[in-house]
Design a protein around this nucleic acid. Structure first.
Length: 648
RNA sequence: GCCGGGGUAGCCUAGCUGGUUGGGGCGACAGACUCAUAAUCUGUAGGUCGCGGGUUCGAAUCCCGCCCCCGGCACCA
């Protein structure tokens, strides 16, 4: 039995192409294993705890529960659309996950791997909370440049211990923070050095992950595993603290397995299964060092392999959300209507799993049109239509050399998959398709048809066997498309094993084949390329549909009252008549308008904007204005109209 | 700085326990064919294998020095 997991996506943002570098190969791997006769459990889930989620939820005026739900549902939607099929896709907010986490932490405590220590933490008196290091800004005590709480990121690059930073400020509200002593709890990672050294020498997986882990091992530090937060798994020894996300997130692998299979104990307690983690290289440390130590310390089974994917680049540029080098899976790829199998093939075939992958729309088009369609799709379609038009039903007599060629391909794939070399596996498929094309071309079956129909049928039978093998062998990479093509020969791929590629039927009846793939045209990718260019240059010029515009409830509003908000230079609290009701809206108008001159003015209001709190004052809606050199200029109707009039 | 990975034709890449003329794919060019989504098939051009030195009968492949690119150097989710 094998358990395959994928790094949990953090429920703090949409999925982009970079994420898929882990999930798609893992899904392909699982599908191949199953077709090789392995029993596999495949799980994943949303990582829902941690400070950024709390902070971002607050920013959007949402509860963390609602906030993560939005992304959790998005993950499920996208994985379904891409045919990444987990046996269970959970959430770390689930009750039983909290229970499992506490149970493991209790075991660590019982076994003496957790100790307490008083440390000094930045505390914001205004926000009334302790600030995680990342939310503190100040001055580096060594080089005096501006720095983050944990690291002098702009100056000398030194790691800063809690309490070292000078002039600490809260990054959330901007006020000065103070240091307060507090007791926190640490995991004794240093106690596992010998164990880890030995473990890592046996751990299997990709070299990139293992190399990193081996480098870090001489340099272990104990981890602070508690945080000052309300959101997360309660720490059993002190209910006012919550566990650090990296404690509970990997435990999701266990708790989700519990949901996926009754055999979970065999996997996680009895060591009767291989545990294979697919991750991005950025979390290799957690999976090769921290996680095995936690498992060892609490008596659970250890992972047998860590498979780390390389980085993703976008149009040759280092991936960066803030700089705009990102491609969103749902809003861009899927919405454009591309076959999900194209992306699956691209990610699996572009380069070795542990090397950098460049995502480019032009390359996508080339690979799809030249490889998937011209080589594979074309062979399948030309054979199926030829067989259907000229024979309808075929007696299957297949030459040994053809079967031999299929067998070679199959073995190549099995070997490659066992080494996580997805590119070699998918290359082998294309080579077989190419072999098919050459064979058919040289046989000149269309001429034989006139001179020797029997011989022609033998040729077609050989090709049909190759076609069938191609469908079976490429099913894990392109499930949707292959299922569609396979209908022409009545083949149910979900029941097939790889071995079936060599099975010769007595006869095959052909139904009218459908084109398996649609080409990608320049027009299809131009808008998407443009989005990237614009995003990189900072413009928001992408076209939206009319429906998108219609989602905006824009109305004329009449300002009934206006007053300044205390301690704010810009903000005014307005009561605005929007027709059916009078609303309180906070607007940043004070620098250009006095409250008095605003009363009675007609303005443009976005009515259905999610409510938010600004300076502690609730705001339901937004007043539209032009921004000229940082100062607002109001928009107002050219003729007198009633308040509440809809803007179209 | 330290550590890891890499630098092979316009682009991507195999080879790297040394040995016949450095493979493959895309693109380019020429031809063939028509069953097929102008798809396919055949052929051609294109390389100082990052730079310099060394070992050897012989090095992309081993050793030394140098240059360049990418990533990591941890509690960041």
């Amino acid at each position: 039995m094998k358990l395959v997991t994928c790094g949990l996506p953090y429920a703090n943002g949409m999925l982009h192409v970079g994420h898929l570098r882990t999930y798609i190969p893992a899904d392909v791997y699982v599908r191949y294993l199953r077709m090789m006769g392995e029993e596999v459990v495949f799980i994943c889930g949303s990582d829902c705890h941690g400070t950024p989620i709390v902070v971002n939820a607050e920013k959007e005026g949402m509860k963390p529960e609602e906030f993560i739900e939005k992304y959790h549902e998005h993950f499920i939607r996208v994985f379904n659309a891409l045919d990444v099929k987990f046996d269970y896709f959970g959430k770390t907010t689930e009750e039983h996950h909290h229970e499992r986490t506490k149970e493991i932490v209790k075991r660590l405590i019982e076994n003496g791997y957790v100790y307490k220590k008083e440390i000094e933490l930045a505390y914001c008196e205004k926000c009334e909370r302790f600030l995680p290091d990342r939310y503190v800004e100040g001055i580096c005590p060594y080089c005096k440049s501006p720095a983050r709480g944990d690291e002098c990121d702009q100056g000398c690059g030194r790691h800063l211990e809690p309490g070292e930073i000078l002039e600490p400020k809260c990054k959330i509200c901007g006020n000065n923070a103070v240091f307060r002593k507090q007791t926190h709890y640490f995991f004794k990672l240093t106690a596992f050095e010998e164990f880890l050294r030995d473990y890592l020498s046996k751990l299997s997986g990709t070299e990139n992950a293992l190399n990193y882990a081996r480098e870090w091992i001489g340099n272990l530090k104990d981890w602070c595993i508690t945080r000052n937060l309300e959101w997360g798994v309660r720490f059993p020894l002190d209910e006012s603290l919550v566990l650090y996300v990296w404690v509970d997130a990997p435990i999701g692998y266990i708790s989700f397995t519990e949901k996926a299979t009754k055999d979970w104990k065999k996997i996680w307690l009895e060591g009767k299964a291989e545990i294979i983690h697919f991750i991005g290289l950025d979390i290799a440390y957690h999976h090769c060092i921290f996680w095995p130590a936690m498992l060892k310390g609490s008596g659970y089974s250890l992972p047998s392999a860590v498979v780390a994917s390389g980085m993703v680049k976008i149009e040759g540029k280092t991936f960066s959300k803030s700089r705009g080098y990102v491609v969103w899976v749902e809003d861009e790829y899927l919405k454009a209507g591309f076959n999900p199998d194209y992306l699956r093939y691209y990610i699996v075939n572009y380069t070795s799993h542990d090397k950098d992958l460049n995502f480019s729309w032009d390359v996508l088009k080339d690979k799809v049109n030249n490889e998937i369609i011209a080589t594979l799709g074309n062979f399948l379609f030309r054979i199926l239509s030829f067989a259907w038009k000229n024979f309808g039903k075929l007696e299957m007599e297949v030459e040994d050399r053809v079967l031999e060629r299929i067998k070679e391909t199959k073995e190549k794939i099995v070997n490659a998959i066992n080494k996580w070399e997805f590119k070699s596996a998918s290359d082998a498929i294309m080579e077989l398709a190419s072999f098919g094309n050459v064979y058919f071309q040289n046989s000149k079956a269309w001429e034989l048809l006139k001179s020797d129909k029997k011989k022609a049928m033998k040729v077609v039978a050989n090709c049909l066997q190759i076609a069938k093998a191609l469908m079976i062998l490429s099913y894990p990479v392109m499930p949707k498309s292959m299922e569609k093509v396979a209908m022409a020969i009545g083949l149910k791929l979900s029941n097939c094993s790889l071995q079936d590629a060599l099975k010769v039927d007595k006869e095959i009846e052909i139904k009218k084949p459908e084109l398996p793939f649609k080409k990608i045209e320049d027009e299809d990718i131009e808008p998407l390329k443009k989005i990237l260019v614009e995003r990189f240059s900072g413009k928001i010029n992408s076209e939206i549909a009319l429906e998108d515009f219609k989602k905006l409830d824009l109305r004329v509003g009449k300002i009934m009252s206006a007053e300044r908000i205390k301690n704010s230079k810009k903000l005014l609290k307005l009561i605005v008549d929007v027709g059916d009701e009078k609303r309180q809206i906070v607007a940043g108008l004070a620098e250009n308008y006095s409250p008095e001159e605003l009363i009675g003015k007609l303005v443009v209001v976005l009515v259905n904007l999610k409510s938010a709190k600004l300076m502690g004052v609730e705001s339901r809606g937004m007043i539209l204005a032009v921004d000229v050199a940082g100062k607002p200029i109001l928009l107002t109707p050219e003729k007198e109209v009633k308040a509440g009039e809809r803007i179209k």
